[in-house]
Simulated scan of single mutants.
Amino acid sequence: MLISAAEPLLFVAALESGYGKIRVLHGIDLTVAPGEVVALLGPNGAGKTTMLRALSGLLPVNAGQVRFGGRDMTNATPREAARAGLVHVIEGHRVFTQISVTDNLLLAGYDLPRGERAARVEEALSFFPEIAEKRHERGGALSGGQQQMLTVAQGLVRRPRLLMLDEPSAGLSPVLVDRVLNVVARLRSQGIAVLLVEQLLEKALAAADRVYALVQGHIVLEAPTSEANLPQRLERAYFGHDSHAAAAG
């Protein structure tokens, strides 16, 4: 089935997931439209990383449904998700330190034809001139911020339809945070959707079109980022002053 104009790129309904017998997510409903930037916010331990892992196939979906691009992707494998264009950039600097920047990116496209891989690597590097200049240096020679850029670039090699970023600002200086989040704006301008997990509230709201707040495994708020008093509503939602029903309305 092809995606219709009315159907979101990502459609999540009543999703439940967790670790073994420990249920972390409880009936999550969430959508992302093509080319939309959606921020998933919440306090530590709310289940944000669990959410991304369930969507990308790293954790089982125990109940509910995930549809992506008009296809049922519930419990798809990570490889199936990535091939469909649902790409997850995992939190932390996950680069191979002993091989070059270019080889790190080539590995991200390991299953693509050689000529296609080379083109995708150049495309990804065009987002990050800082690491393009260091393409022949070992991954371990990059600064922490540059390694984070390389991690995002690895995701871009897959040419995603939806890029899921888990805390891309972690450990970065304010200047580098802006540099990484500027890439989010560029992706949106190219029609690529982004689901952004971020602790820096002000930065996330500036980058996103809509926001979901996740608290103790429940969505407690969904709103456009243009809404007045949104930071105050988020703060109340985090600390339980909004009921689930009122906050989600």
Rank of each mutant, 00 (worst) to 15 (best):
E123G: 13
E123C: 12
E123D: 15
E123W: 15
A124G: 03
A124C: 13
A124S: 09
A124V: 09
L125C: 07
S126C: 01
S126Q: 03
S126M: 07
F127E: 12
F127M: 04
F127T: 02
F128A: 04
F128M: 13
P129D: 10
P129L: 12
P129G: 10
P129Y: 13
P129I: 07
P129F: 07
E130Q: 12
E130P: 07
E130R: 14
I131F: 03
I131A: 05
I131V: 00
I131W: 00
I131L: 02
A132C: 11
A132G: 12
E133N: 01
K134E: 10
R135C: 04
R135D: 00
H136W: 08
H136Y: 09
E137Q: 14
E137M: 12
E137H: 10
E137G: 02
E137A: 09
E137S: 11
R138Q: 15
G139M: 06
G140C: 08
G140P: 07
G140N: 04
G140L: 06
A141Y: 02
L142F: 12
L142D: 01
S143N: 08
S143H: 02
G145P: 05
Q146I: 00
Q146E: 14
Q146T: 04
Q146D: 02
Q147F: 12
Q147H: 06
Q147N: 09
Q147V: 03
Q147P: 06
Q148I: 00
Q148V: 02
Q148F: 00
Q148A: 03
Q148W: 05
Q148M: 05
M149Y: 03
M149I: 00
M149S: 00
L150C: 08
L150Q: 05
L150E: 09
T151L: 11
T151W: 10
T151Q: 14
T151P: 02
T151K: 13
V152E: 06
V152N: 00
V152H: 00
A153I: 03
Q154M: 15
Q154F: 03
Q154K: 15
G155H: 01
G155F: 07
L156I: 13
L156H: 04
L156T: 06
L156K: 01
V157G: 08
R158Q: 14
R159S: 10
R159P: 08
R159L: 11
P160T: 13
R161G: 07
L162V: 05
L162C: 12
L163I: 13
M164Y: 00
M164L: 15
M164E: 00
L165C: 13
D166A: 10
D166R: 08
E167W: 05
E167I: 04
E167D: 10
P168L: 03
P168D: 05
S169G: 10
S169C: 09
S169F: 03
S169W: 12
A170T: 08
A170Q: 15
A170P: 11
A170M: 14
G171K: 11
G171H: 01
G171P: 02
G171W: 10
G171E: 10
G171Y: 11
L172W: 06
S173E: 07
S173R: 12
S173Q: 14
S173L: 15
P174N: 09
P174D: 11
P174Y: 08
P174C: 11
P174R: 13
V175Q: 15
V175I: 12
V175K: 14
V175C: 05
L176E: 14
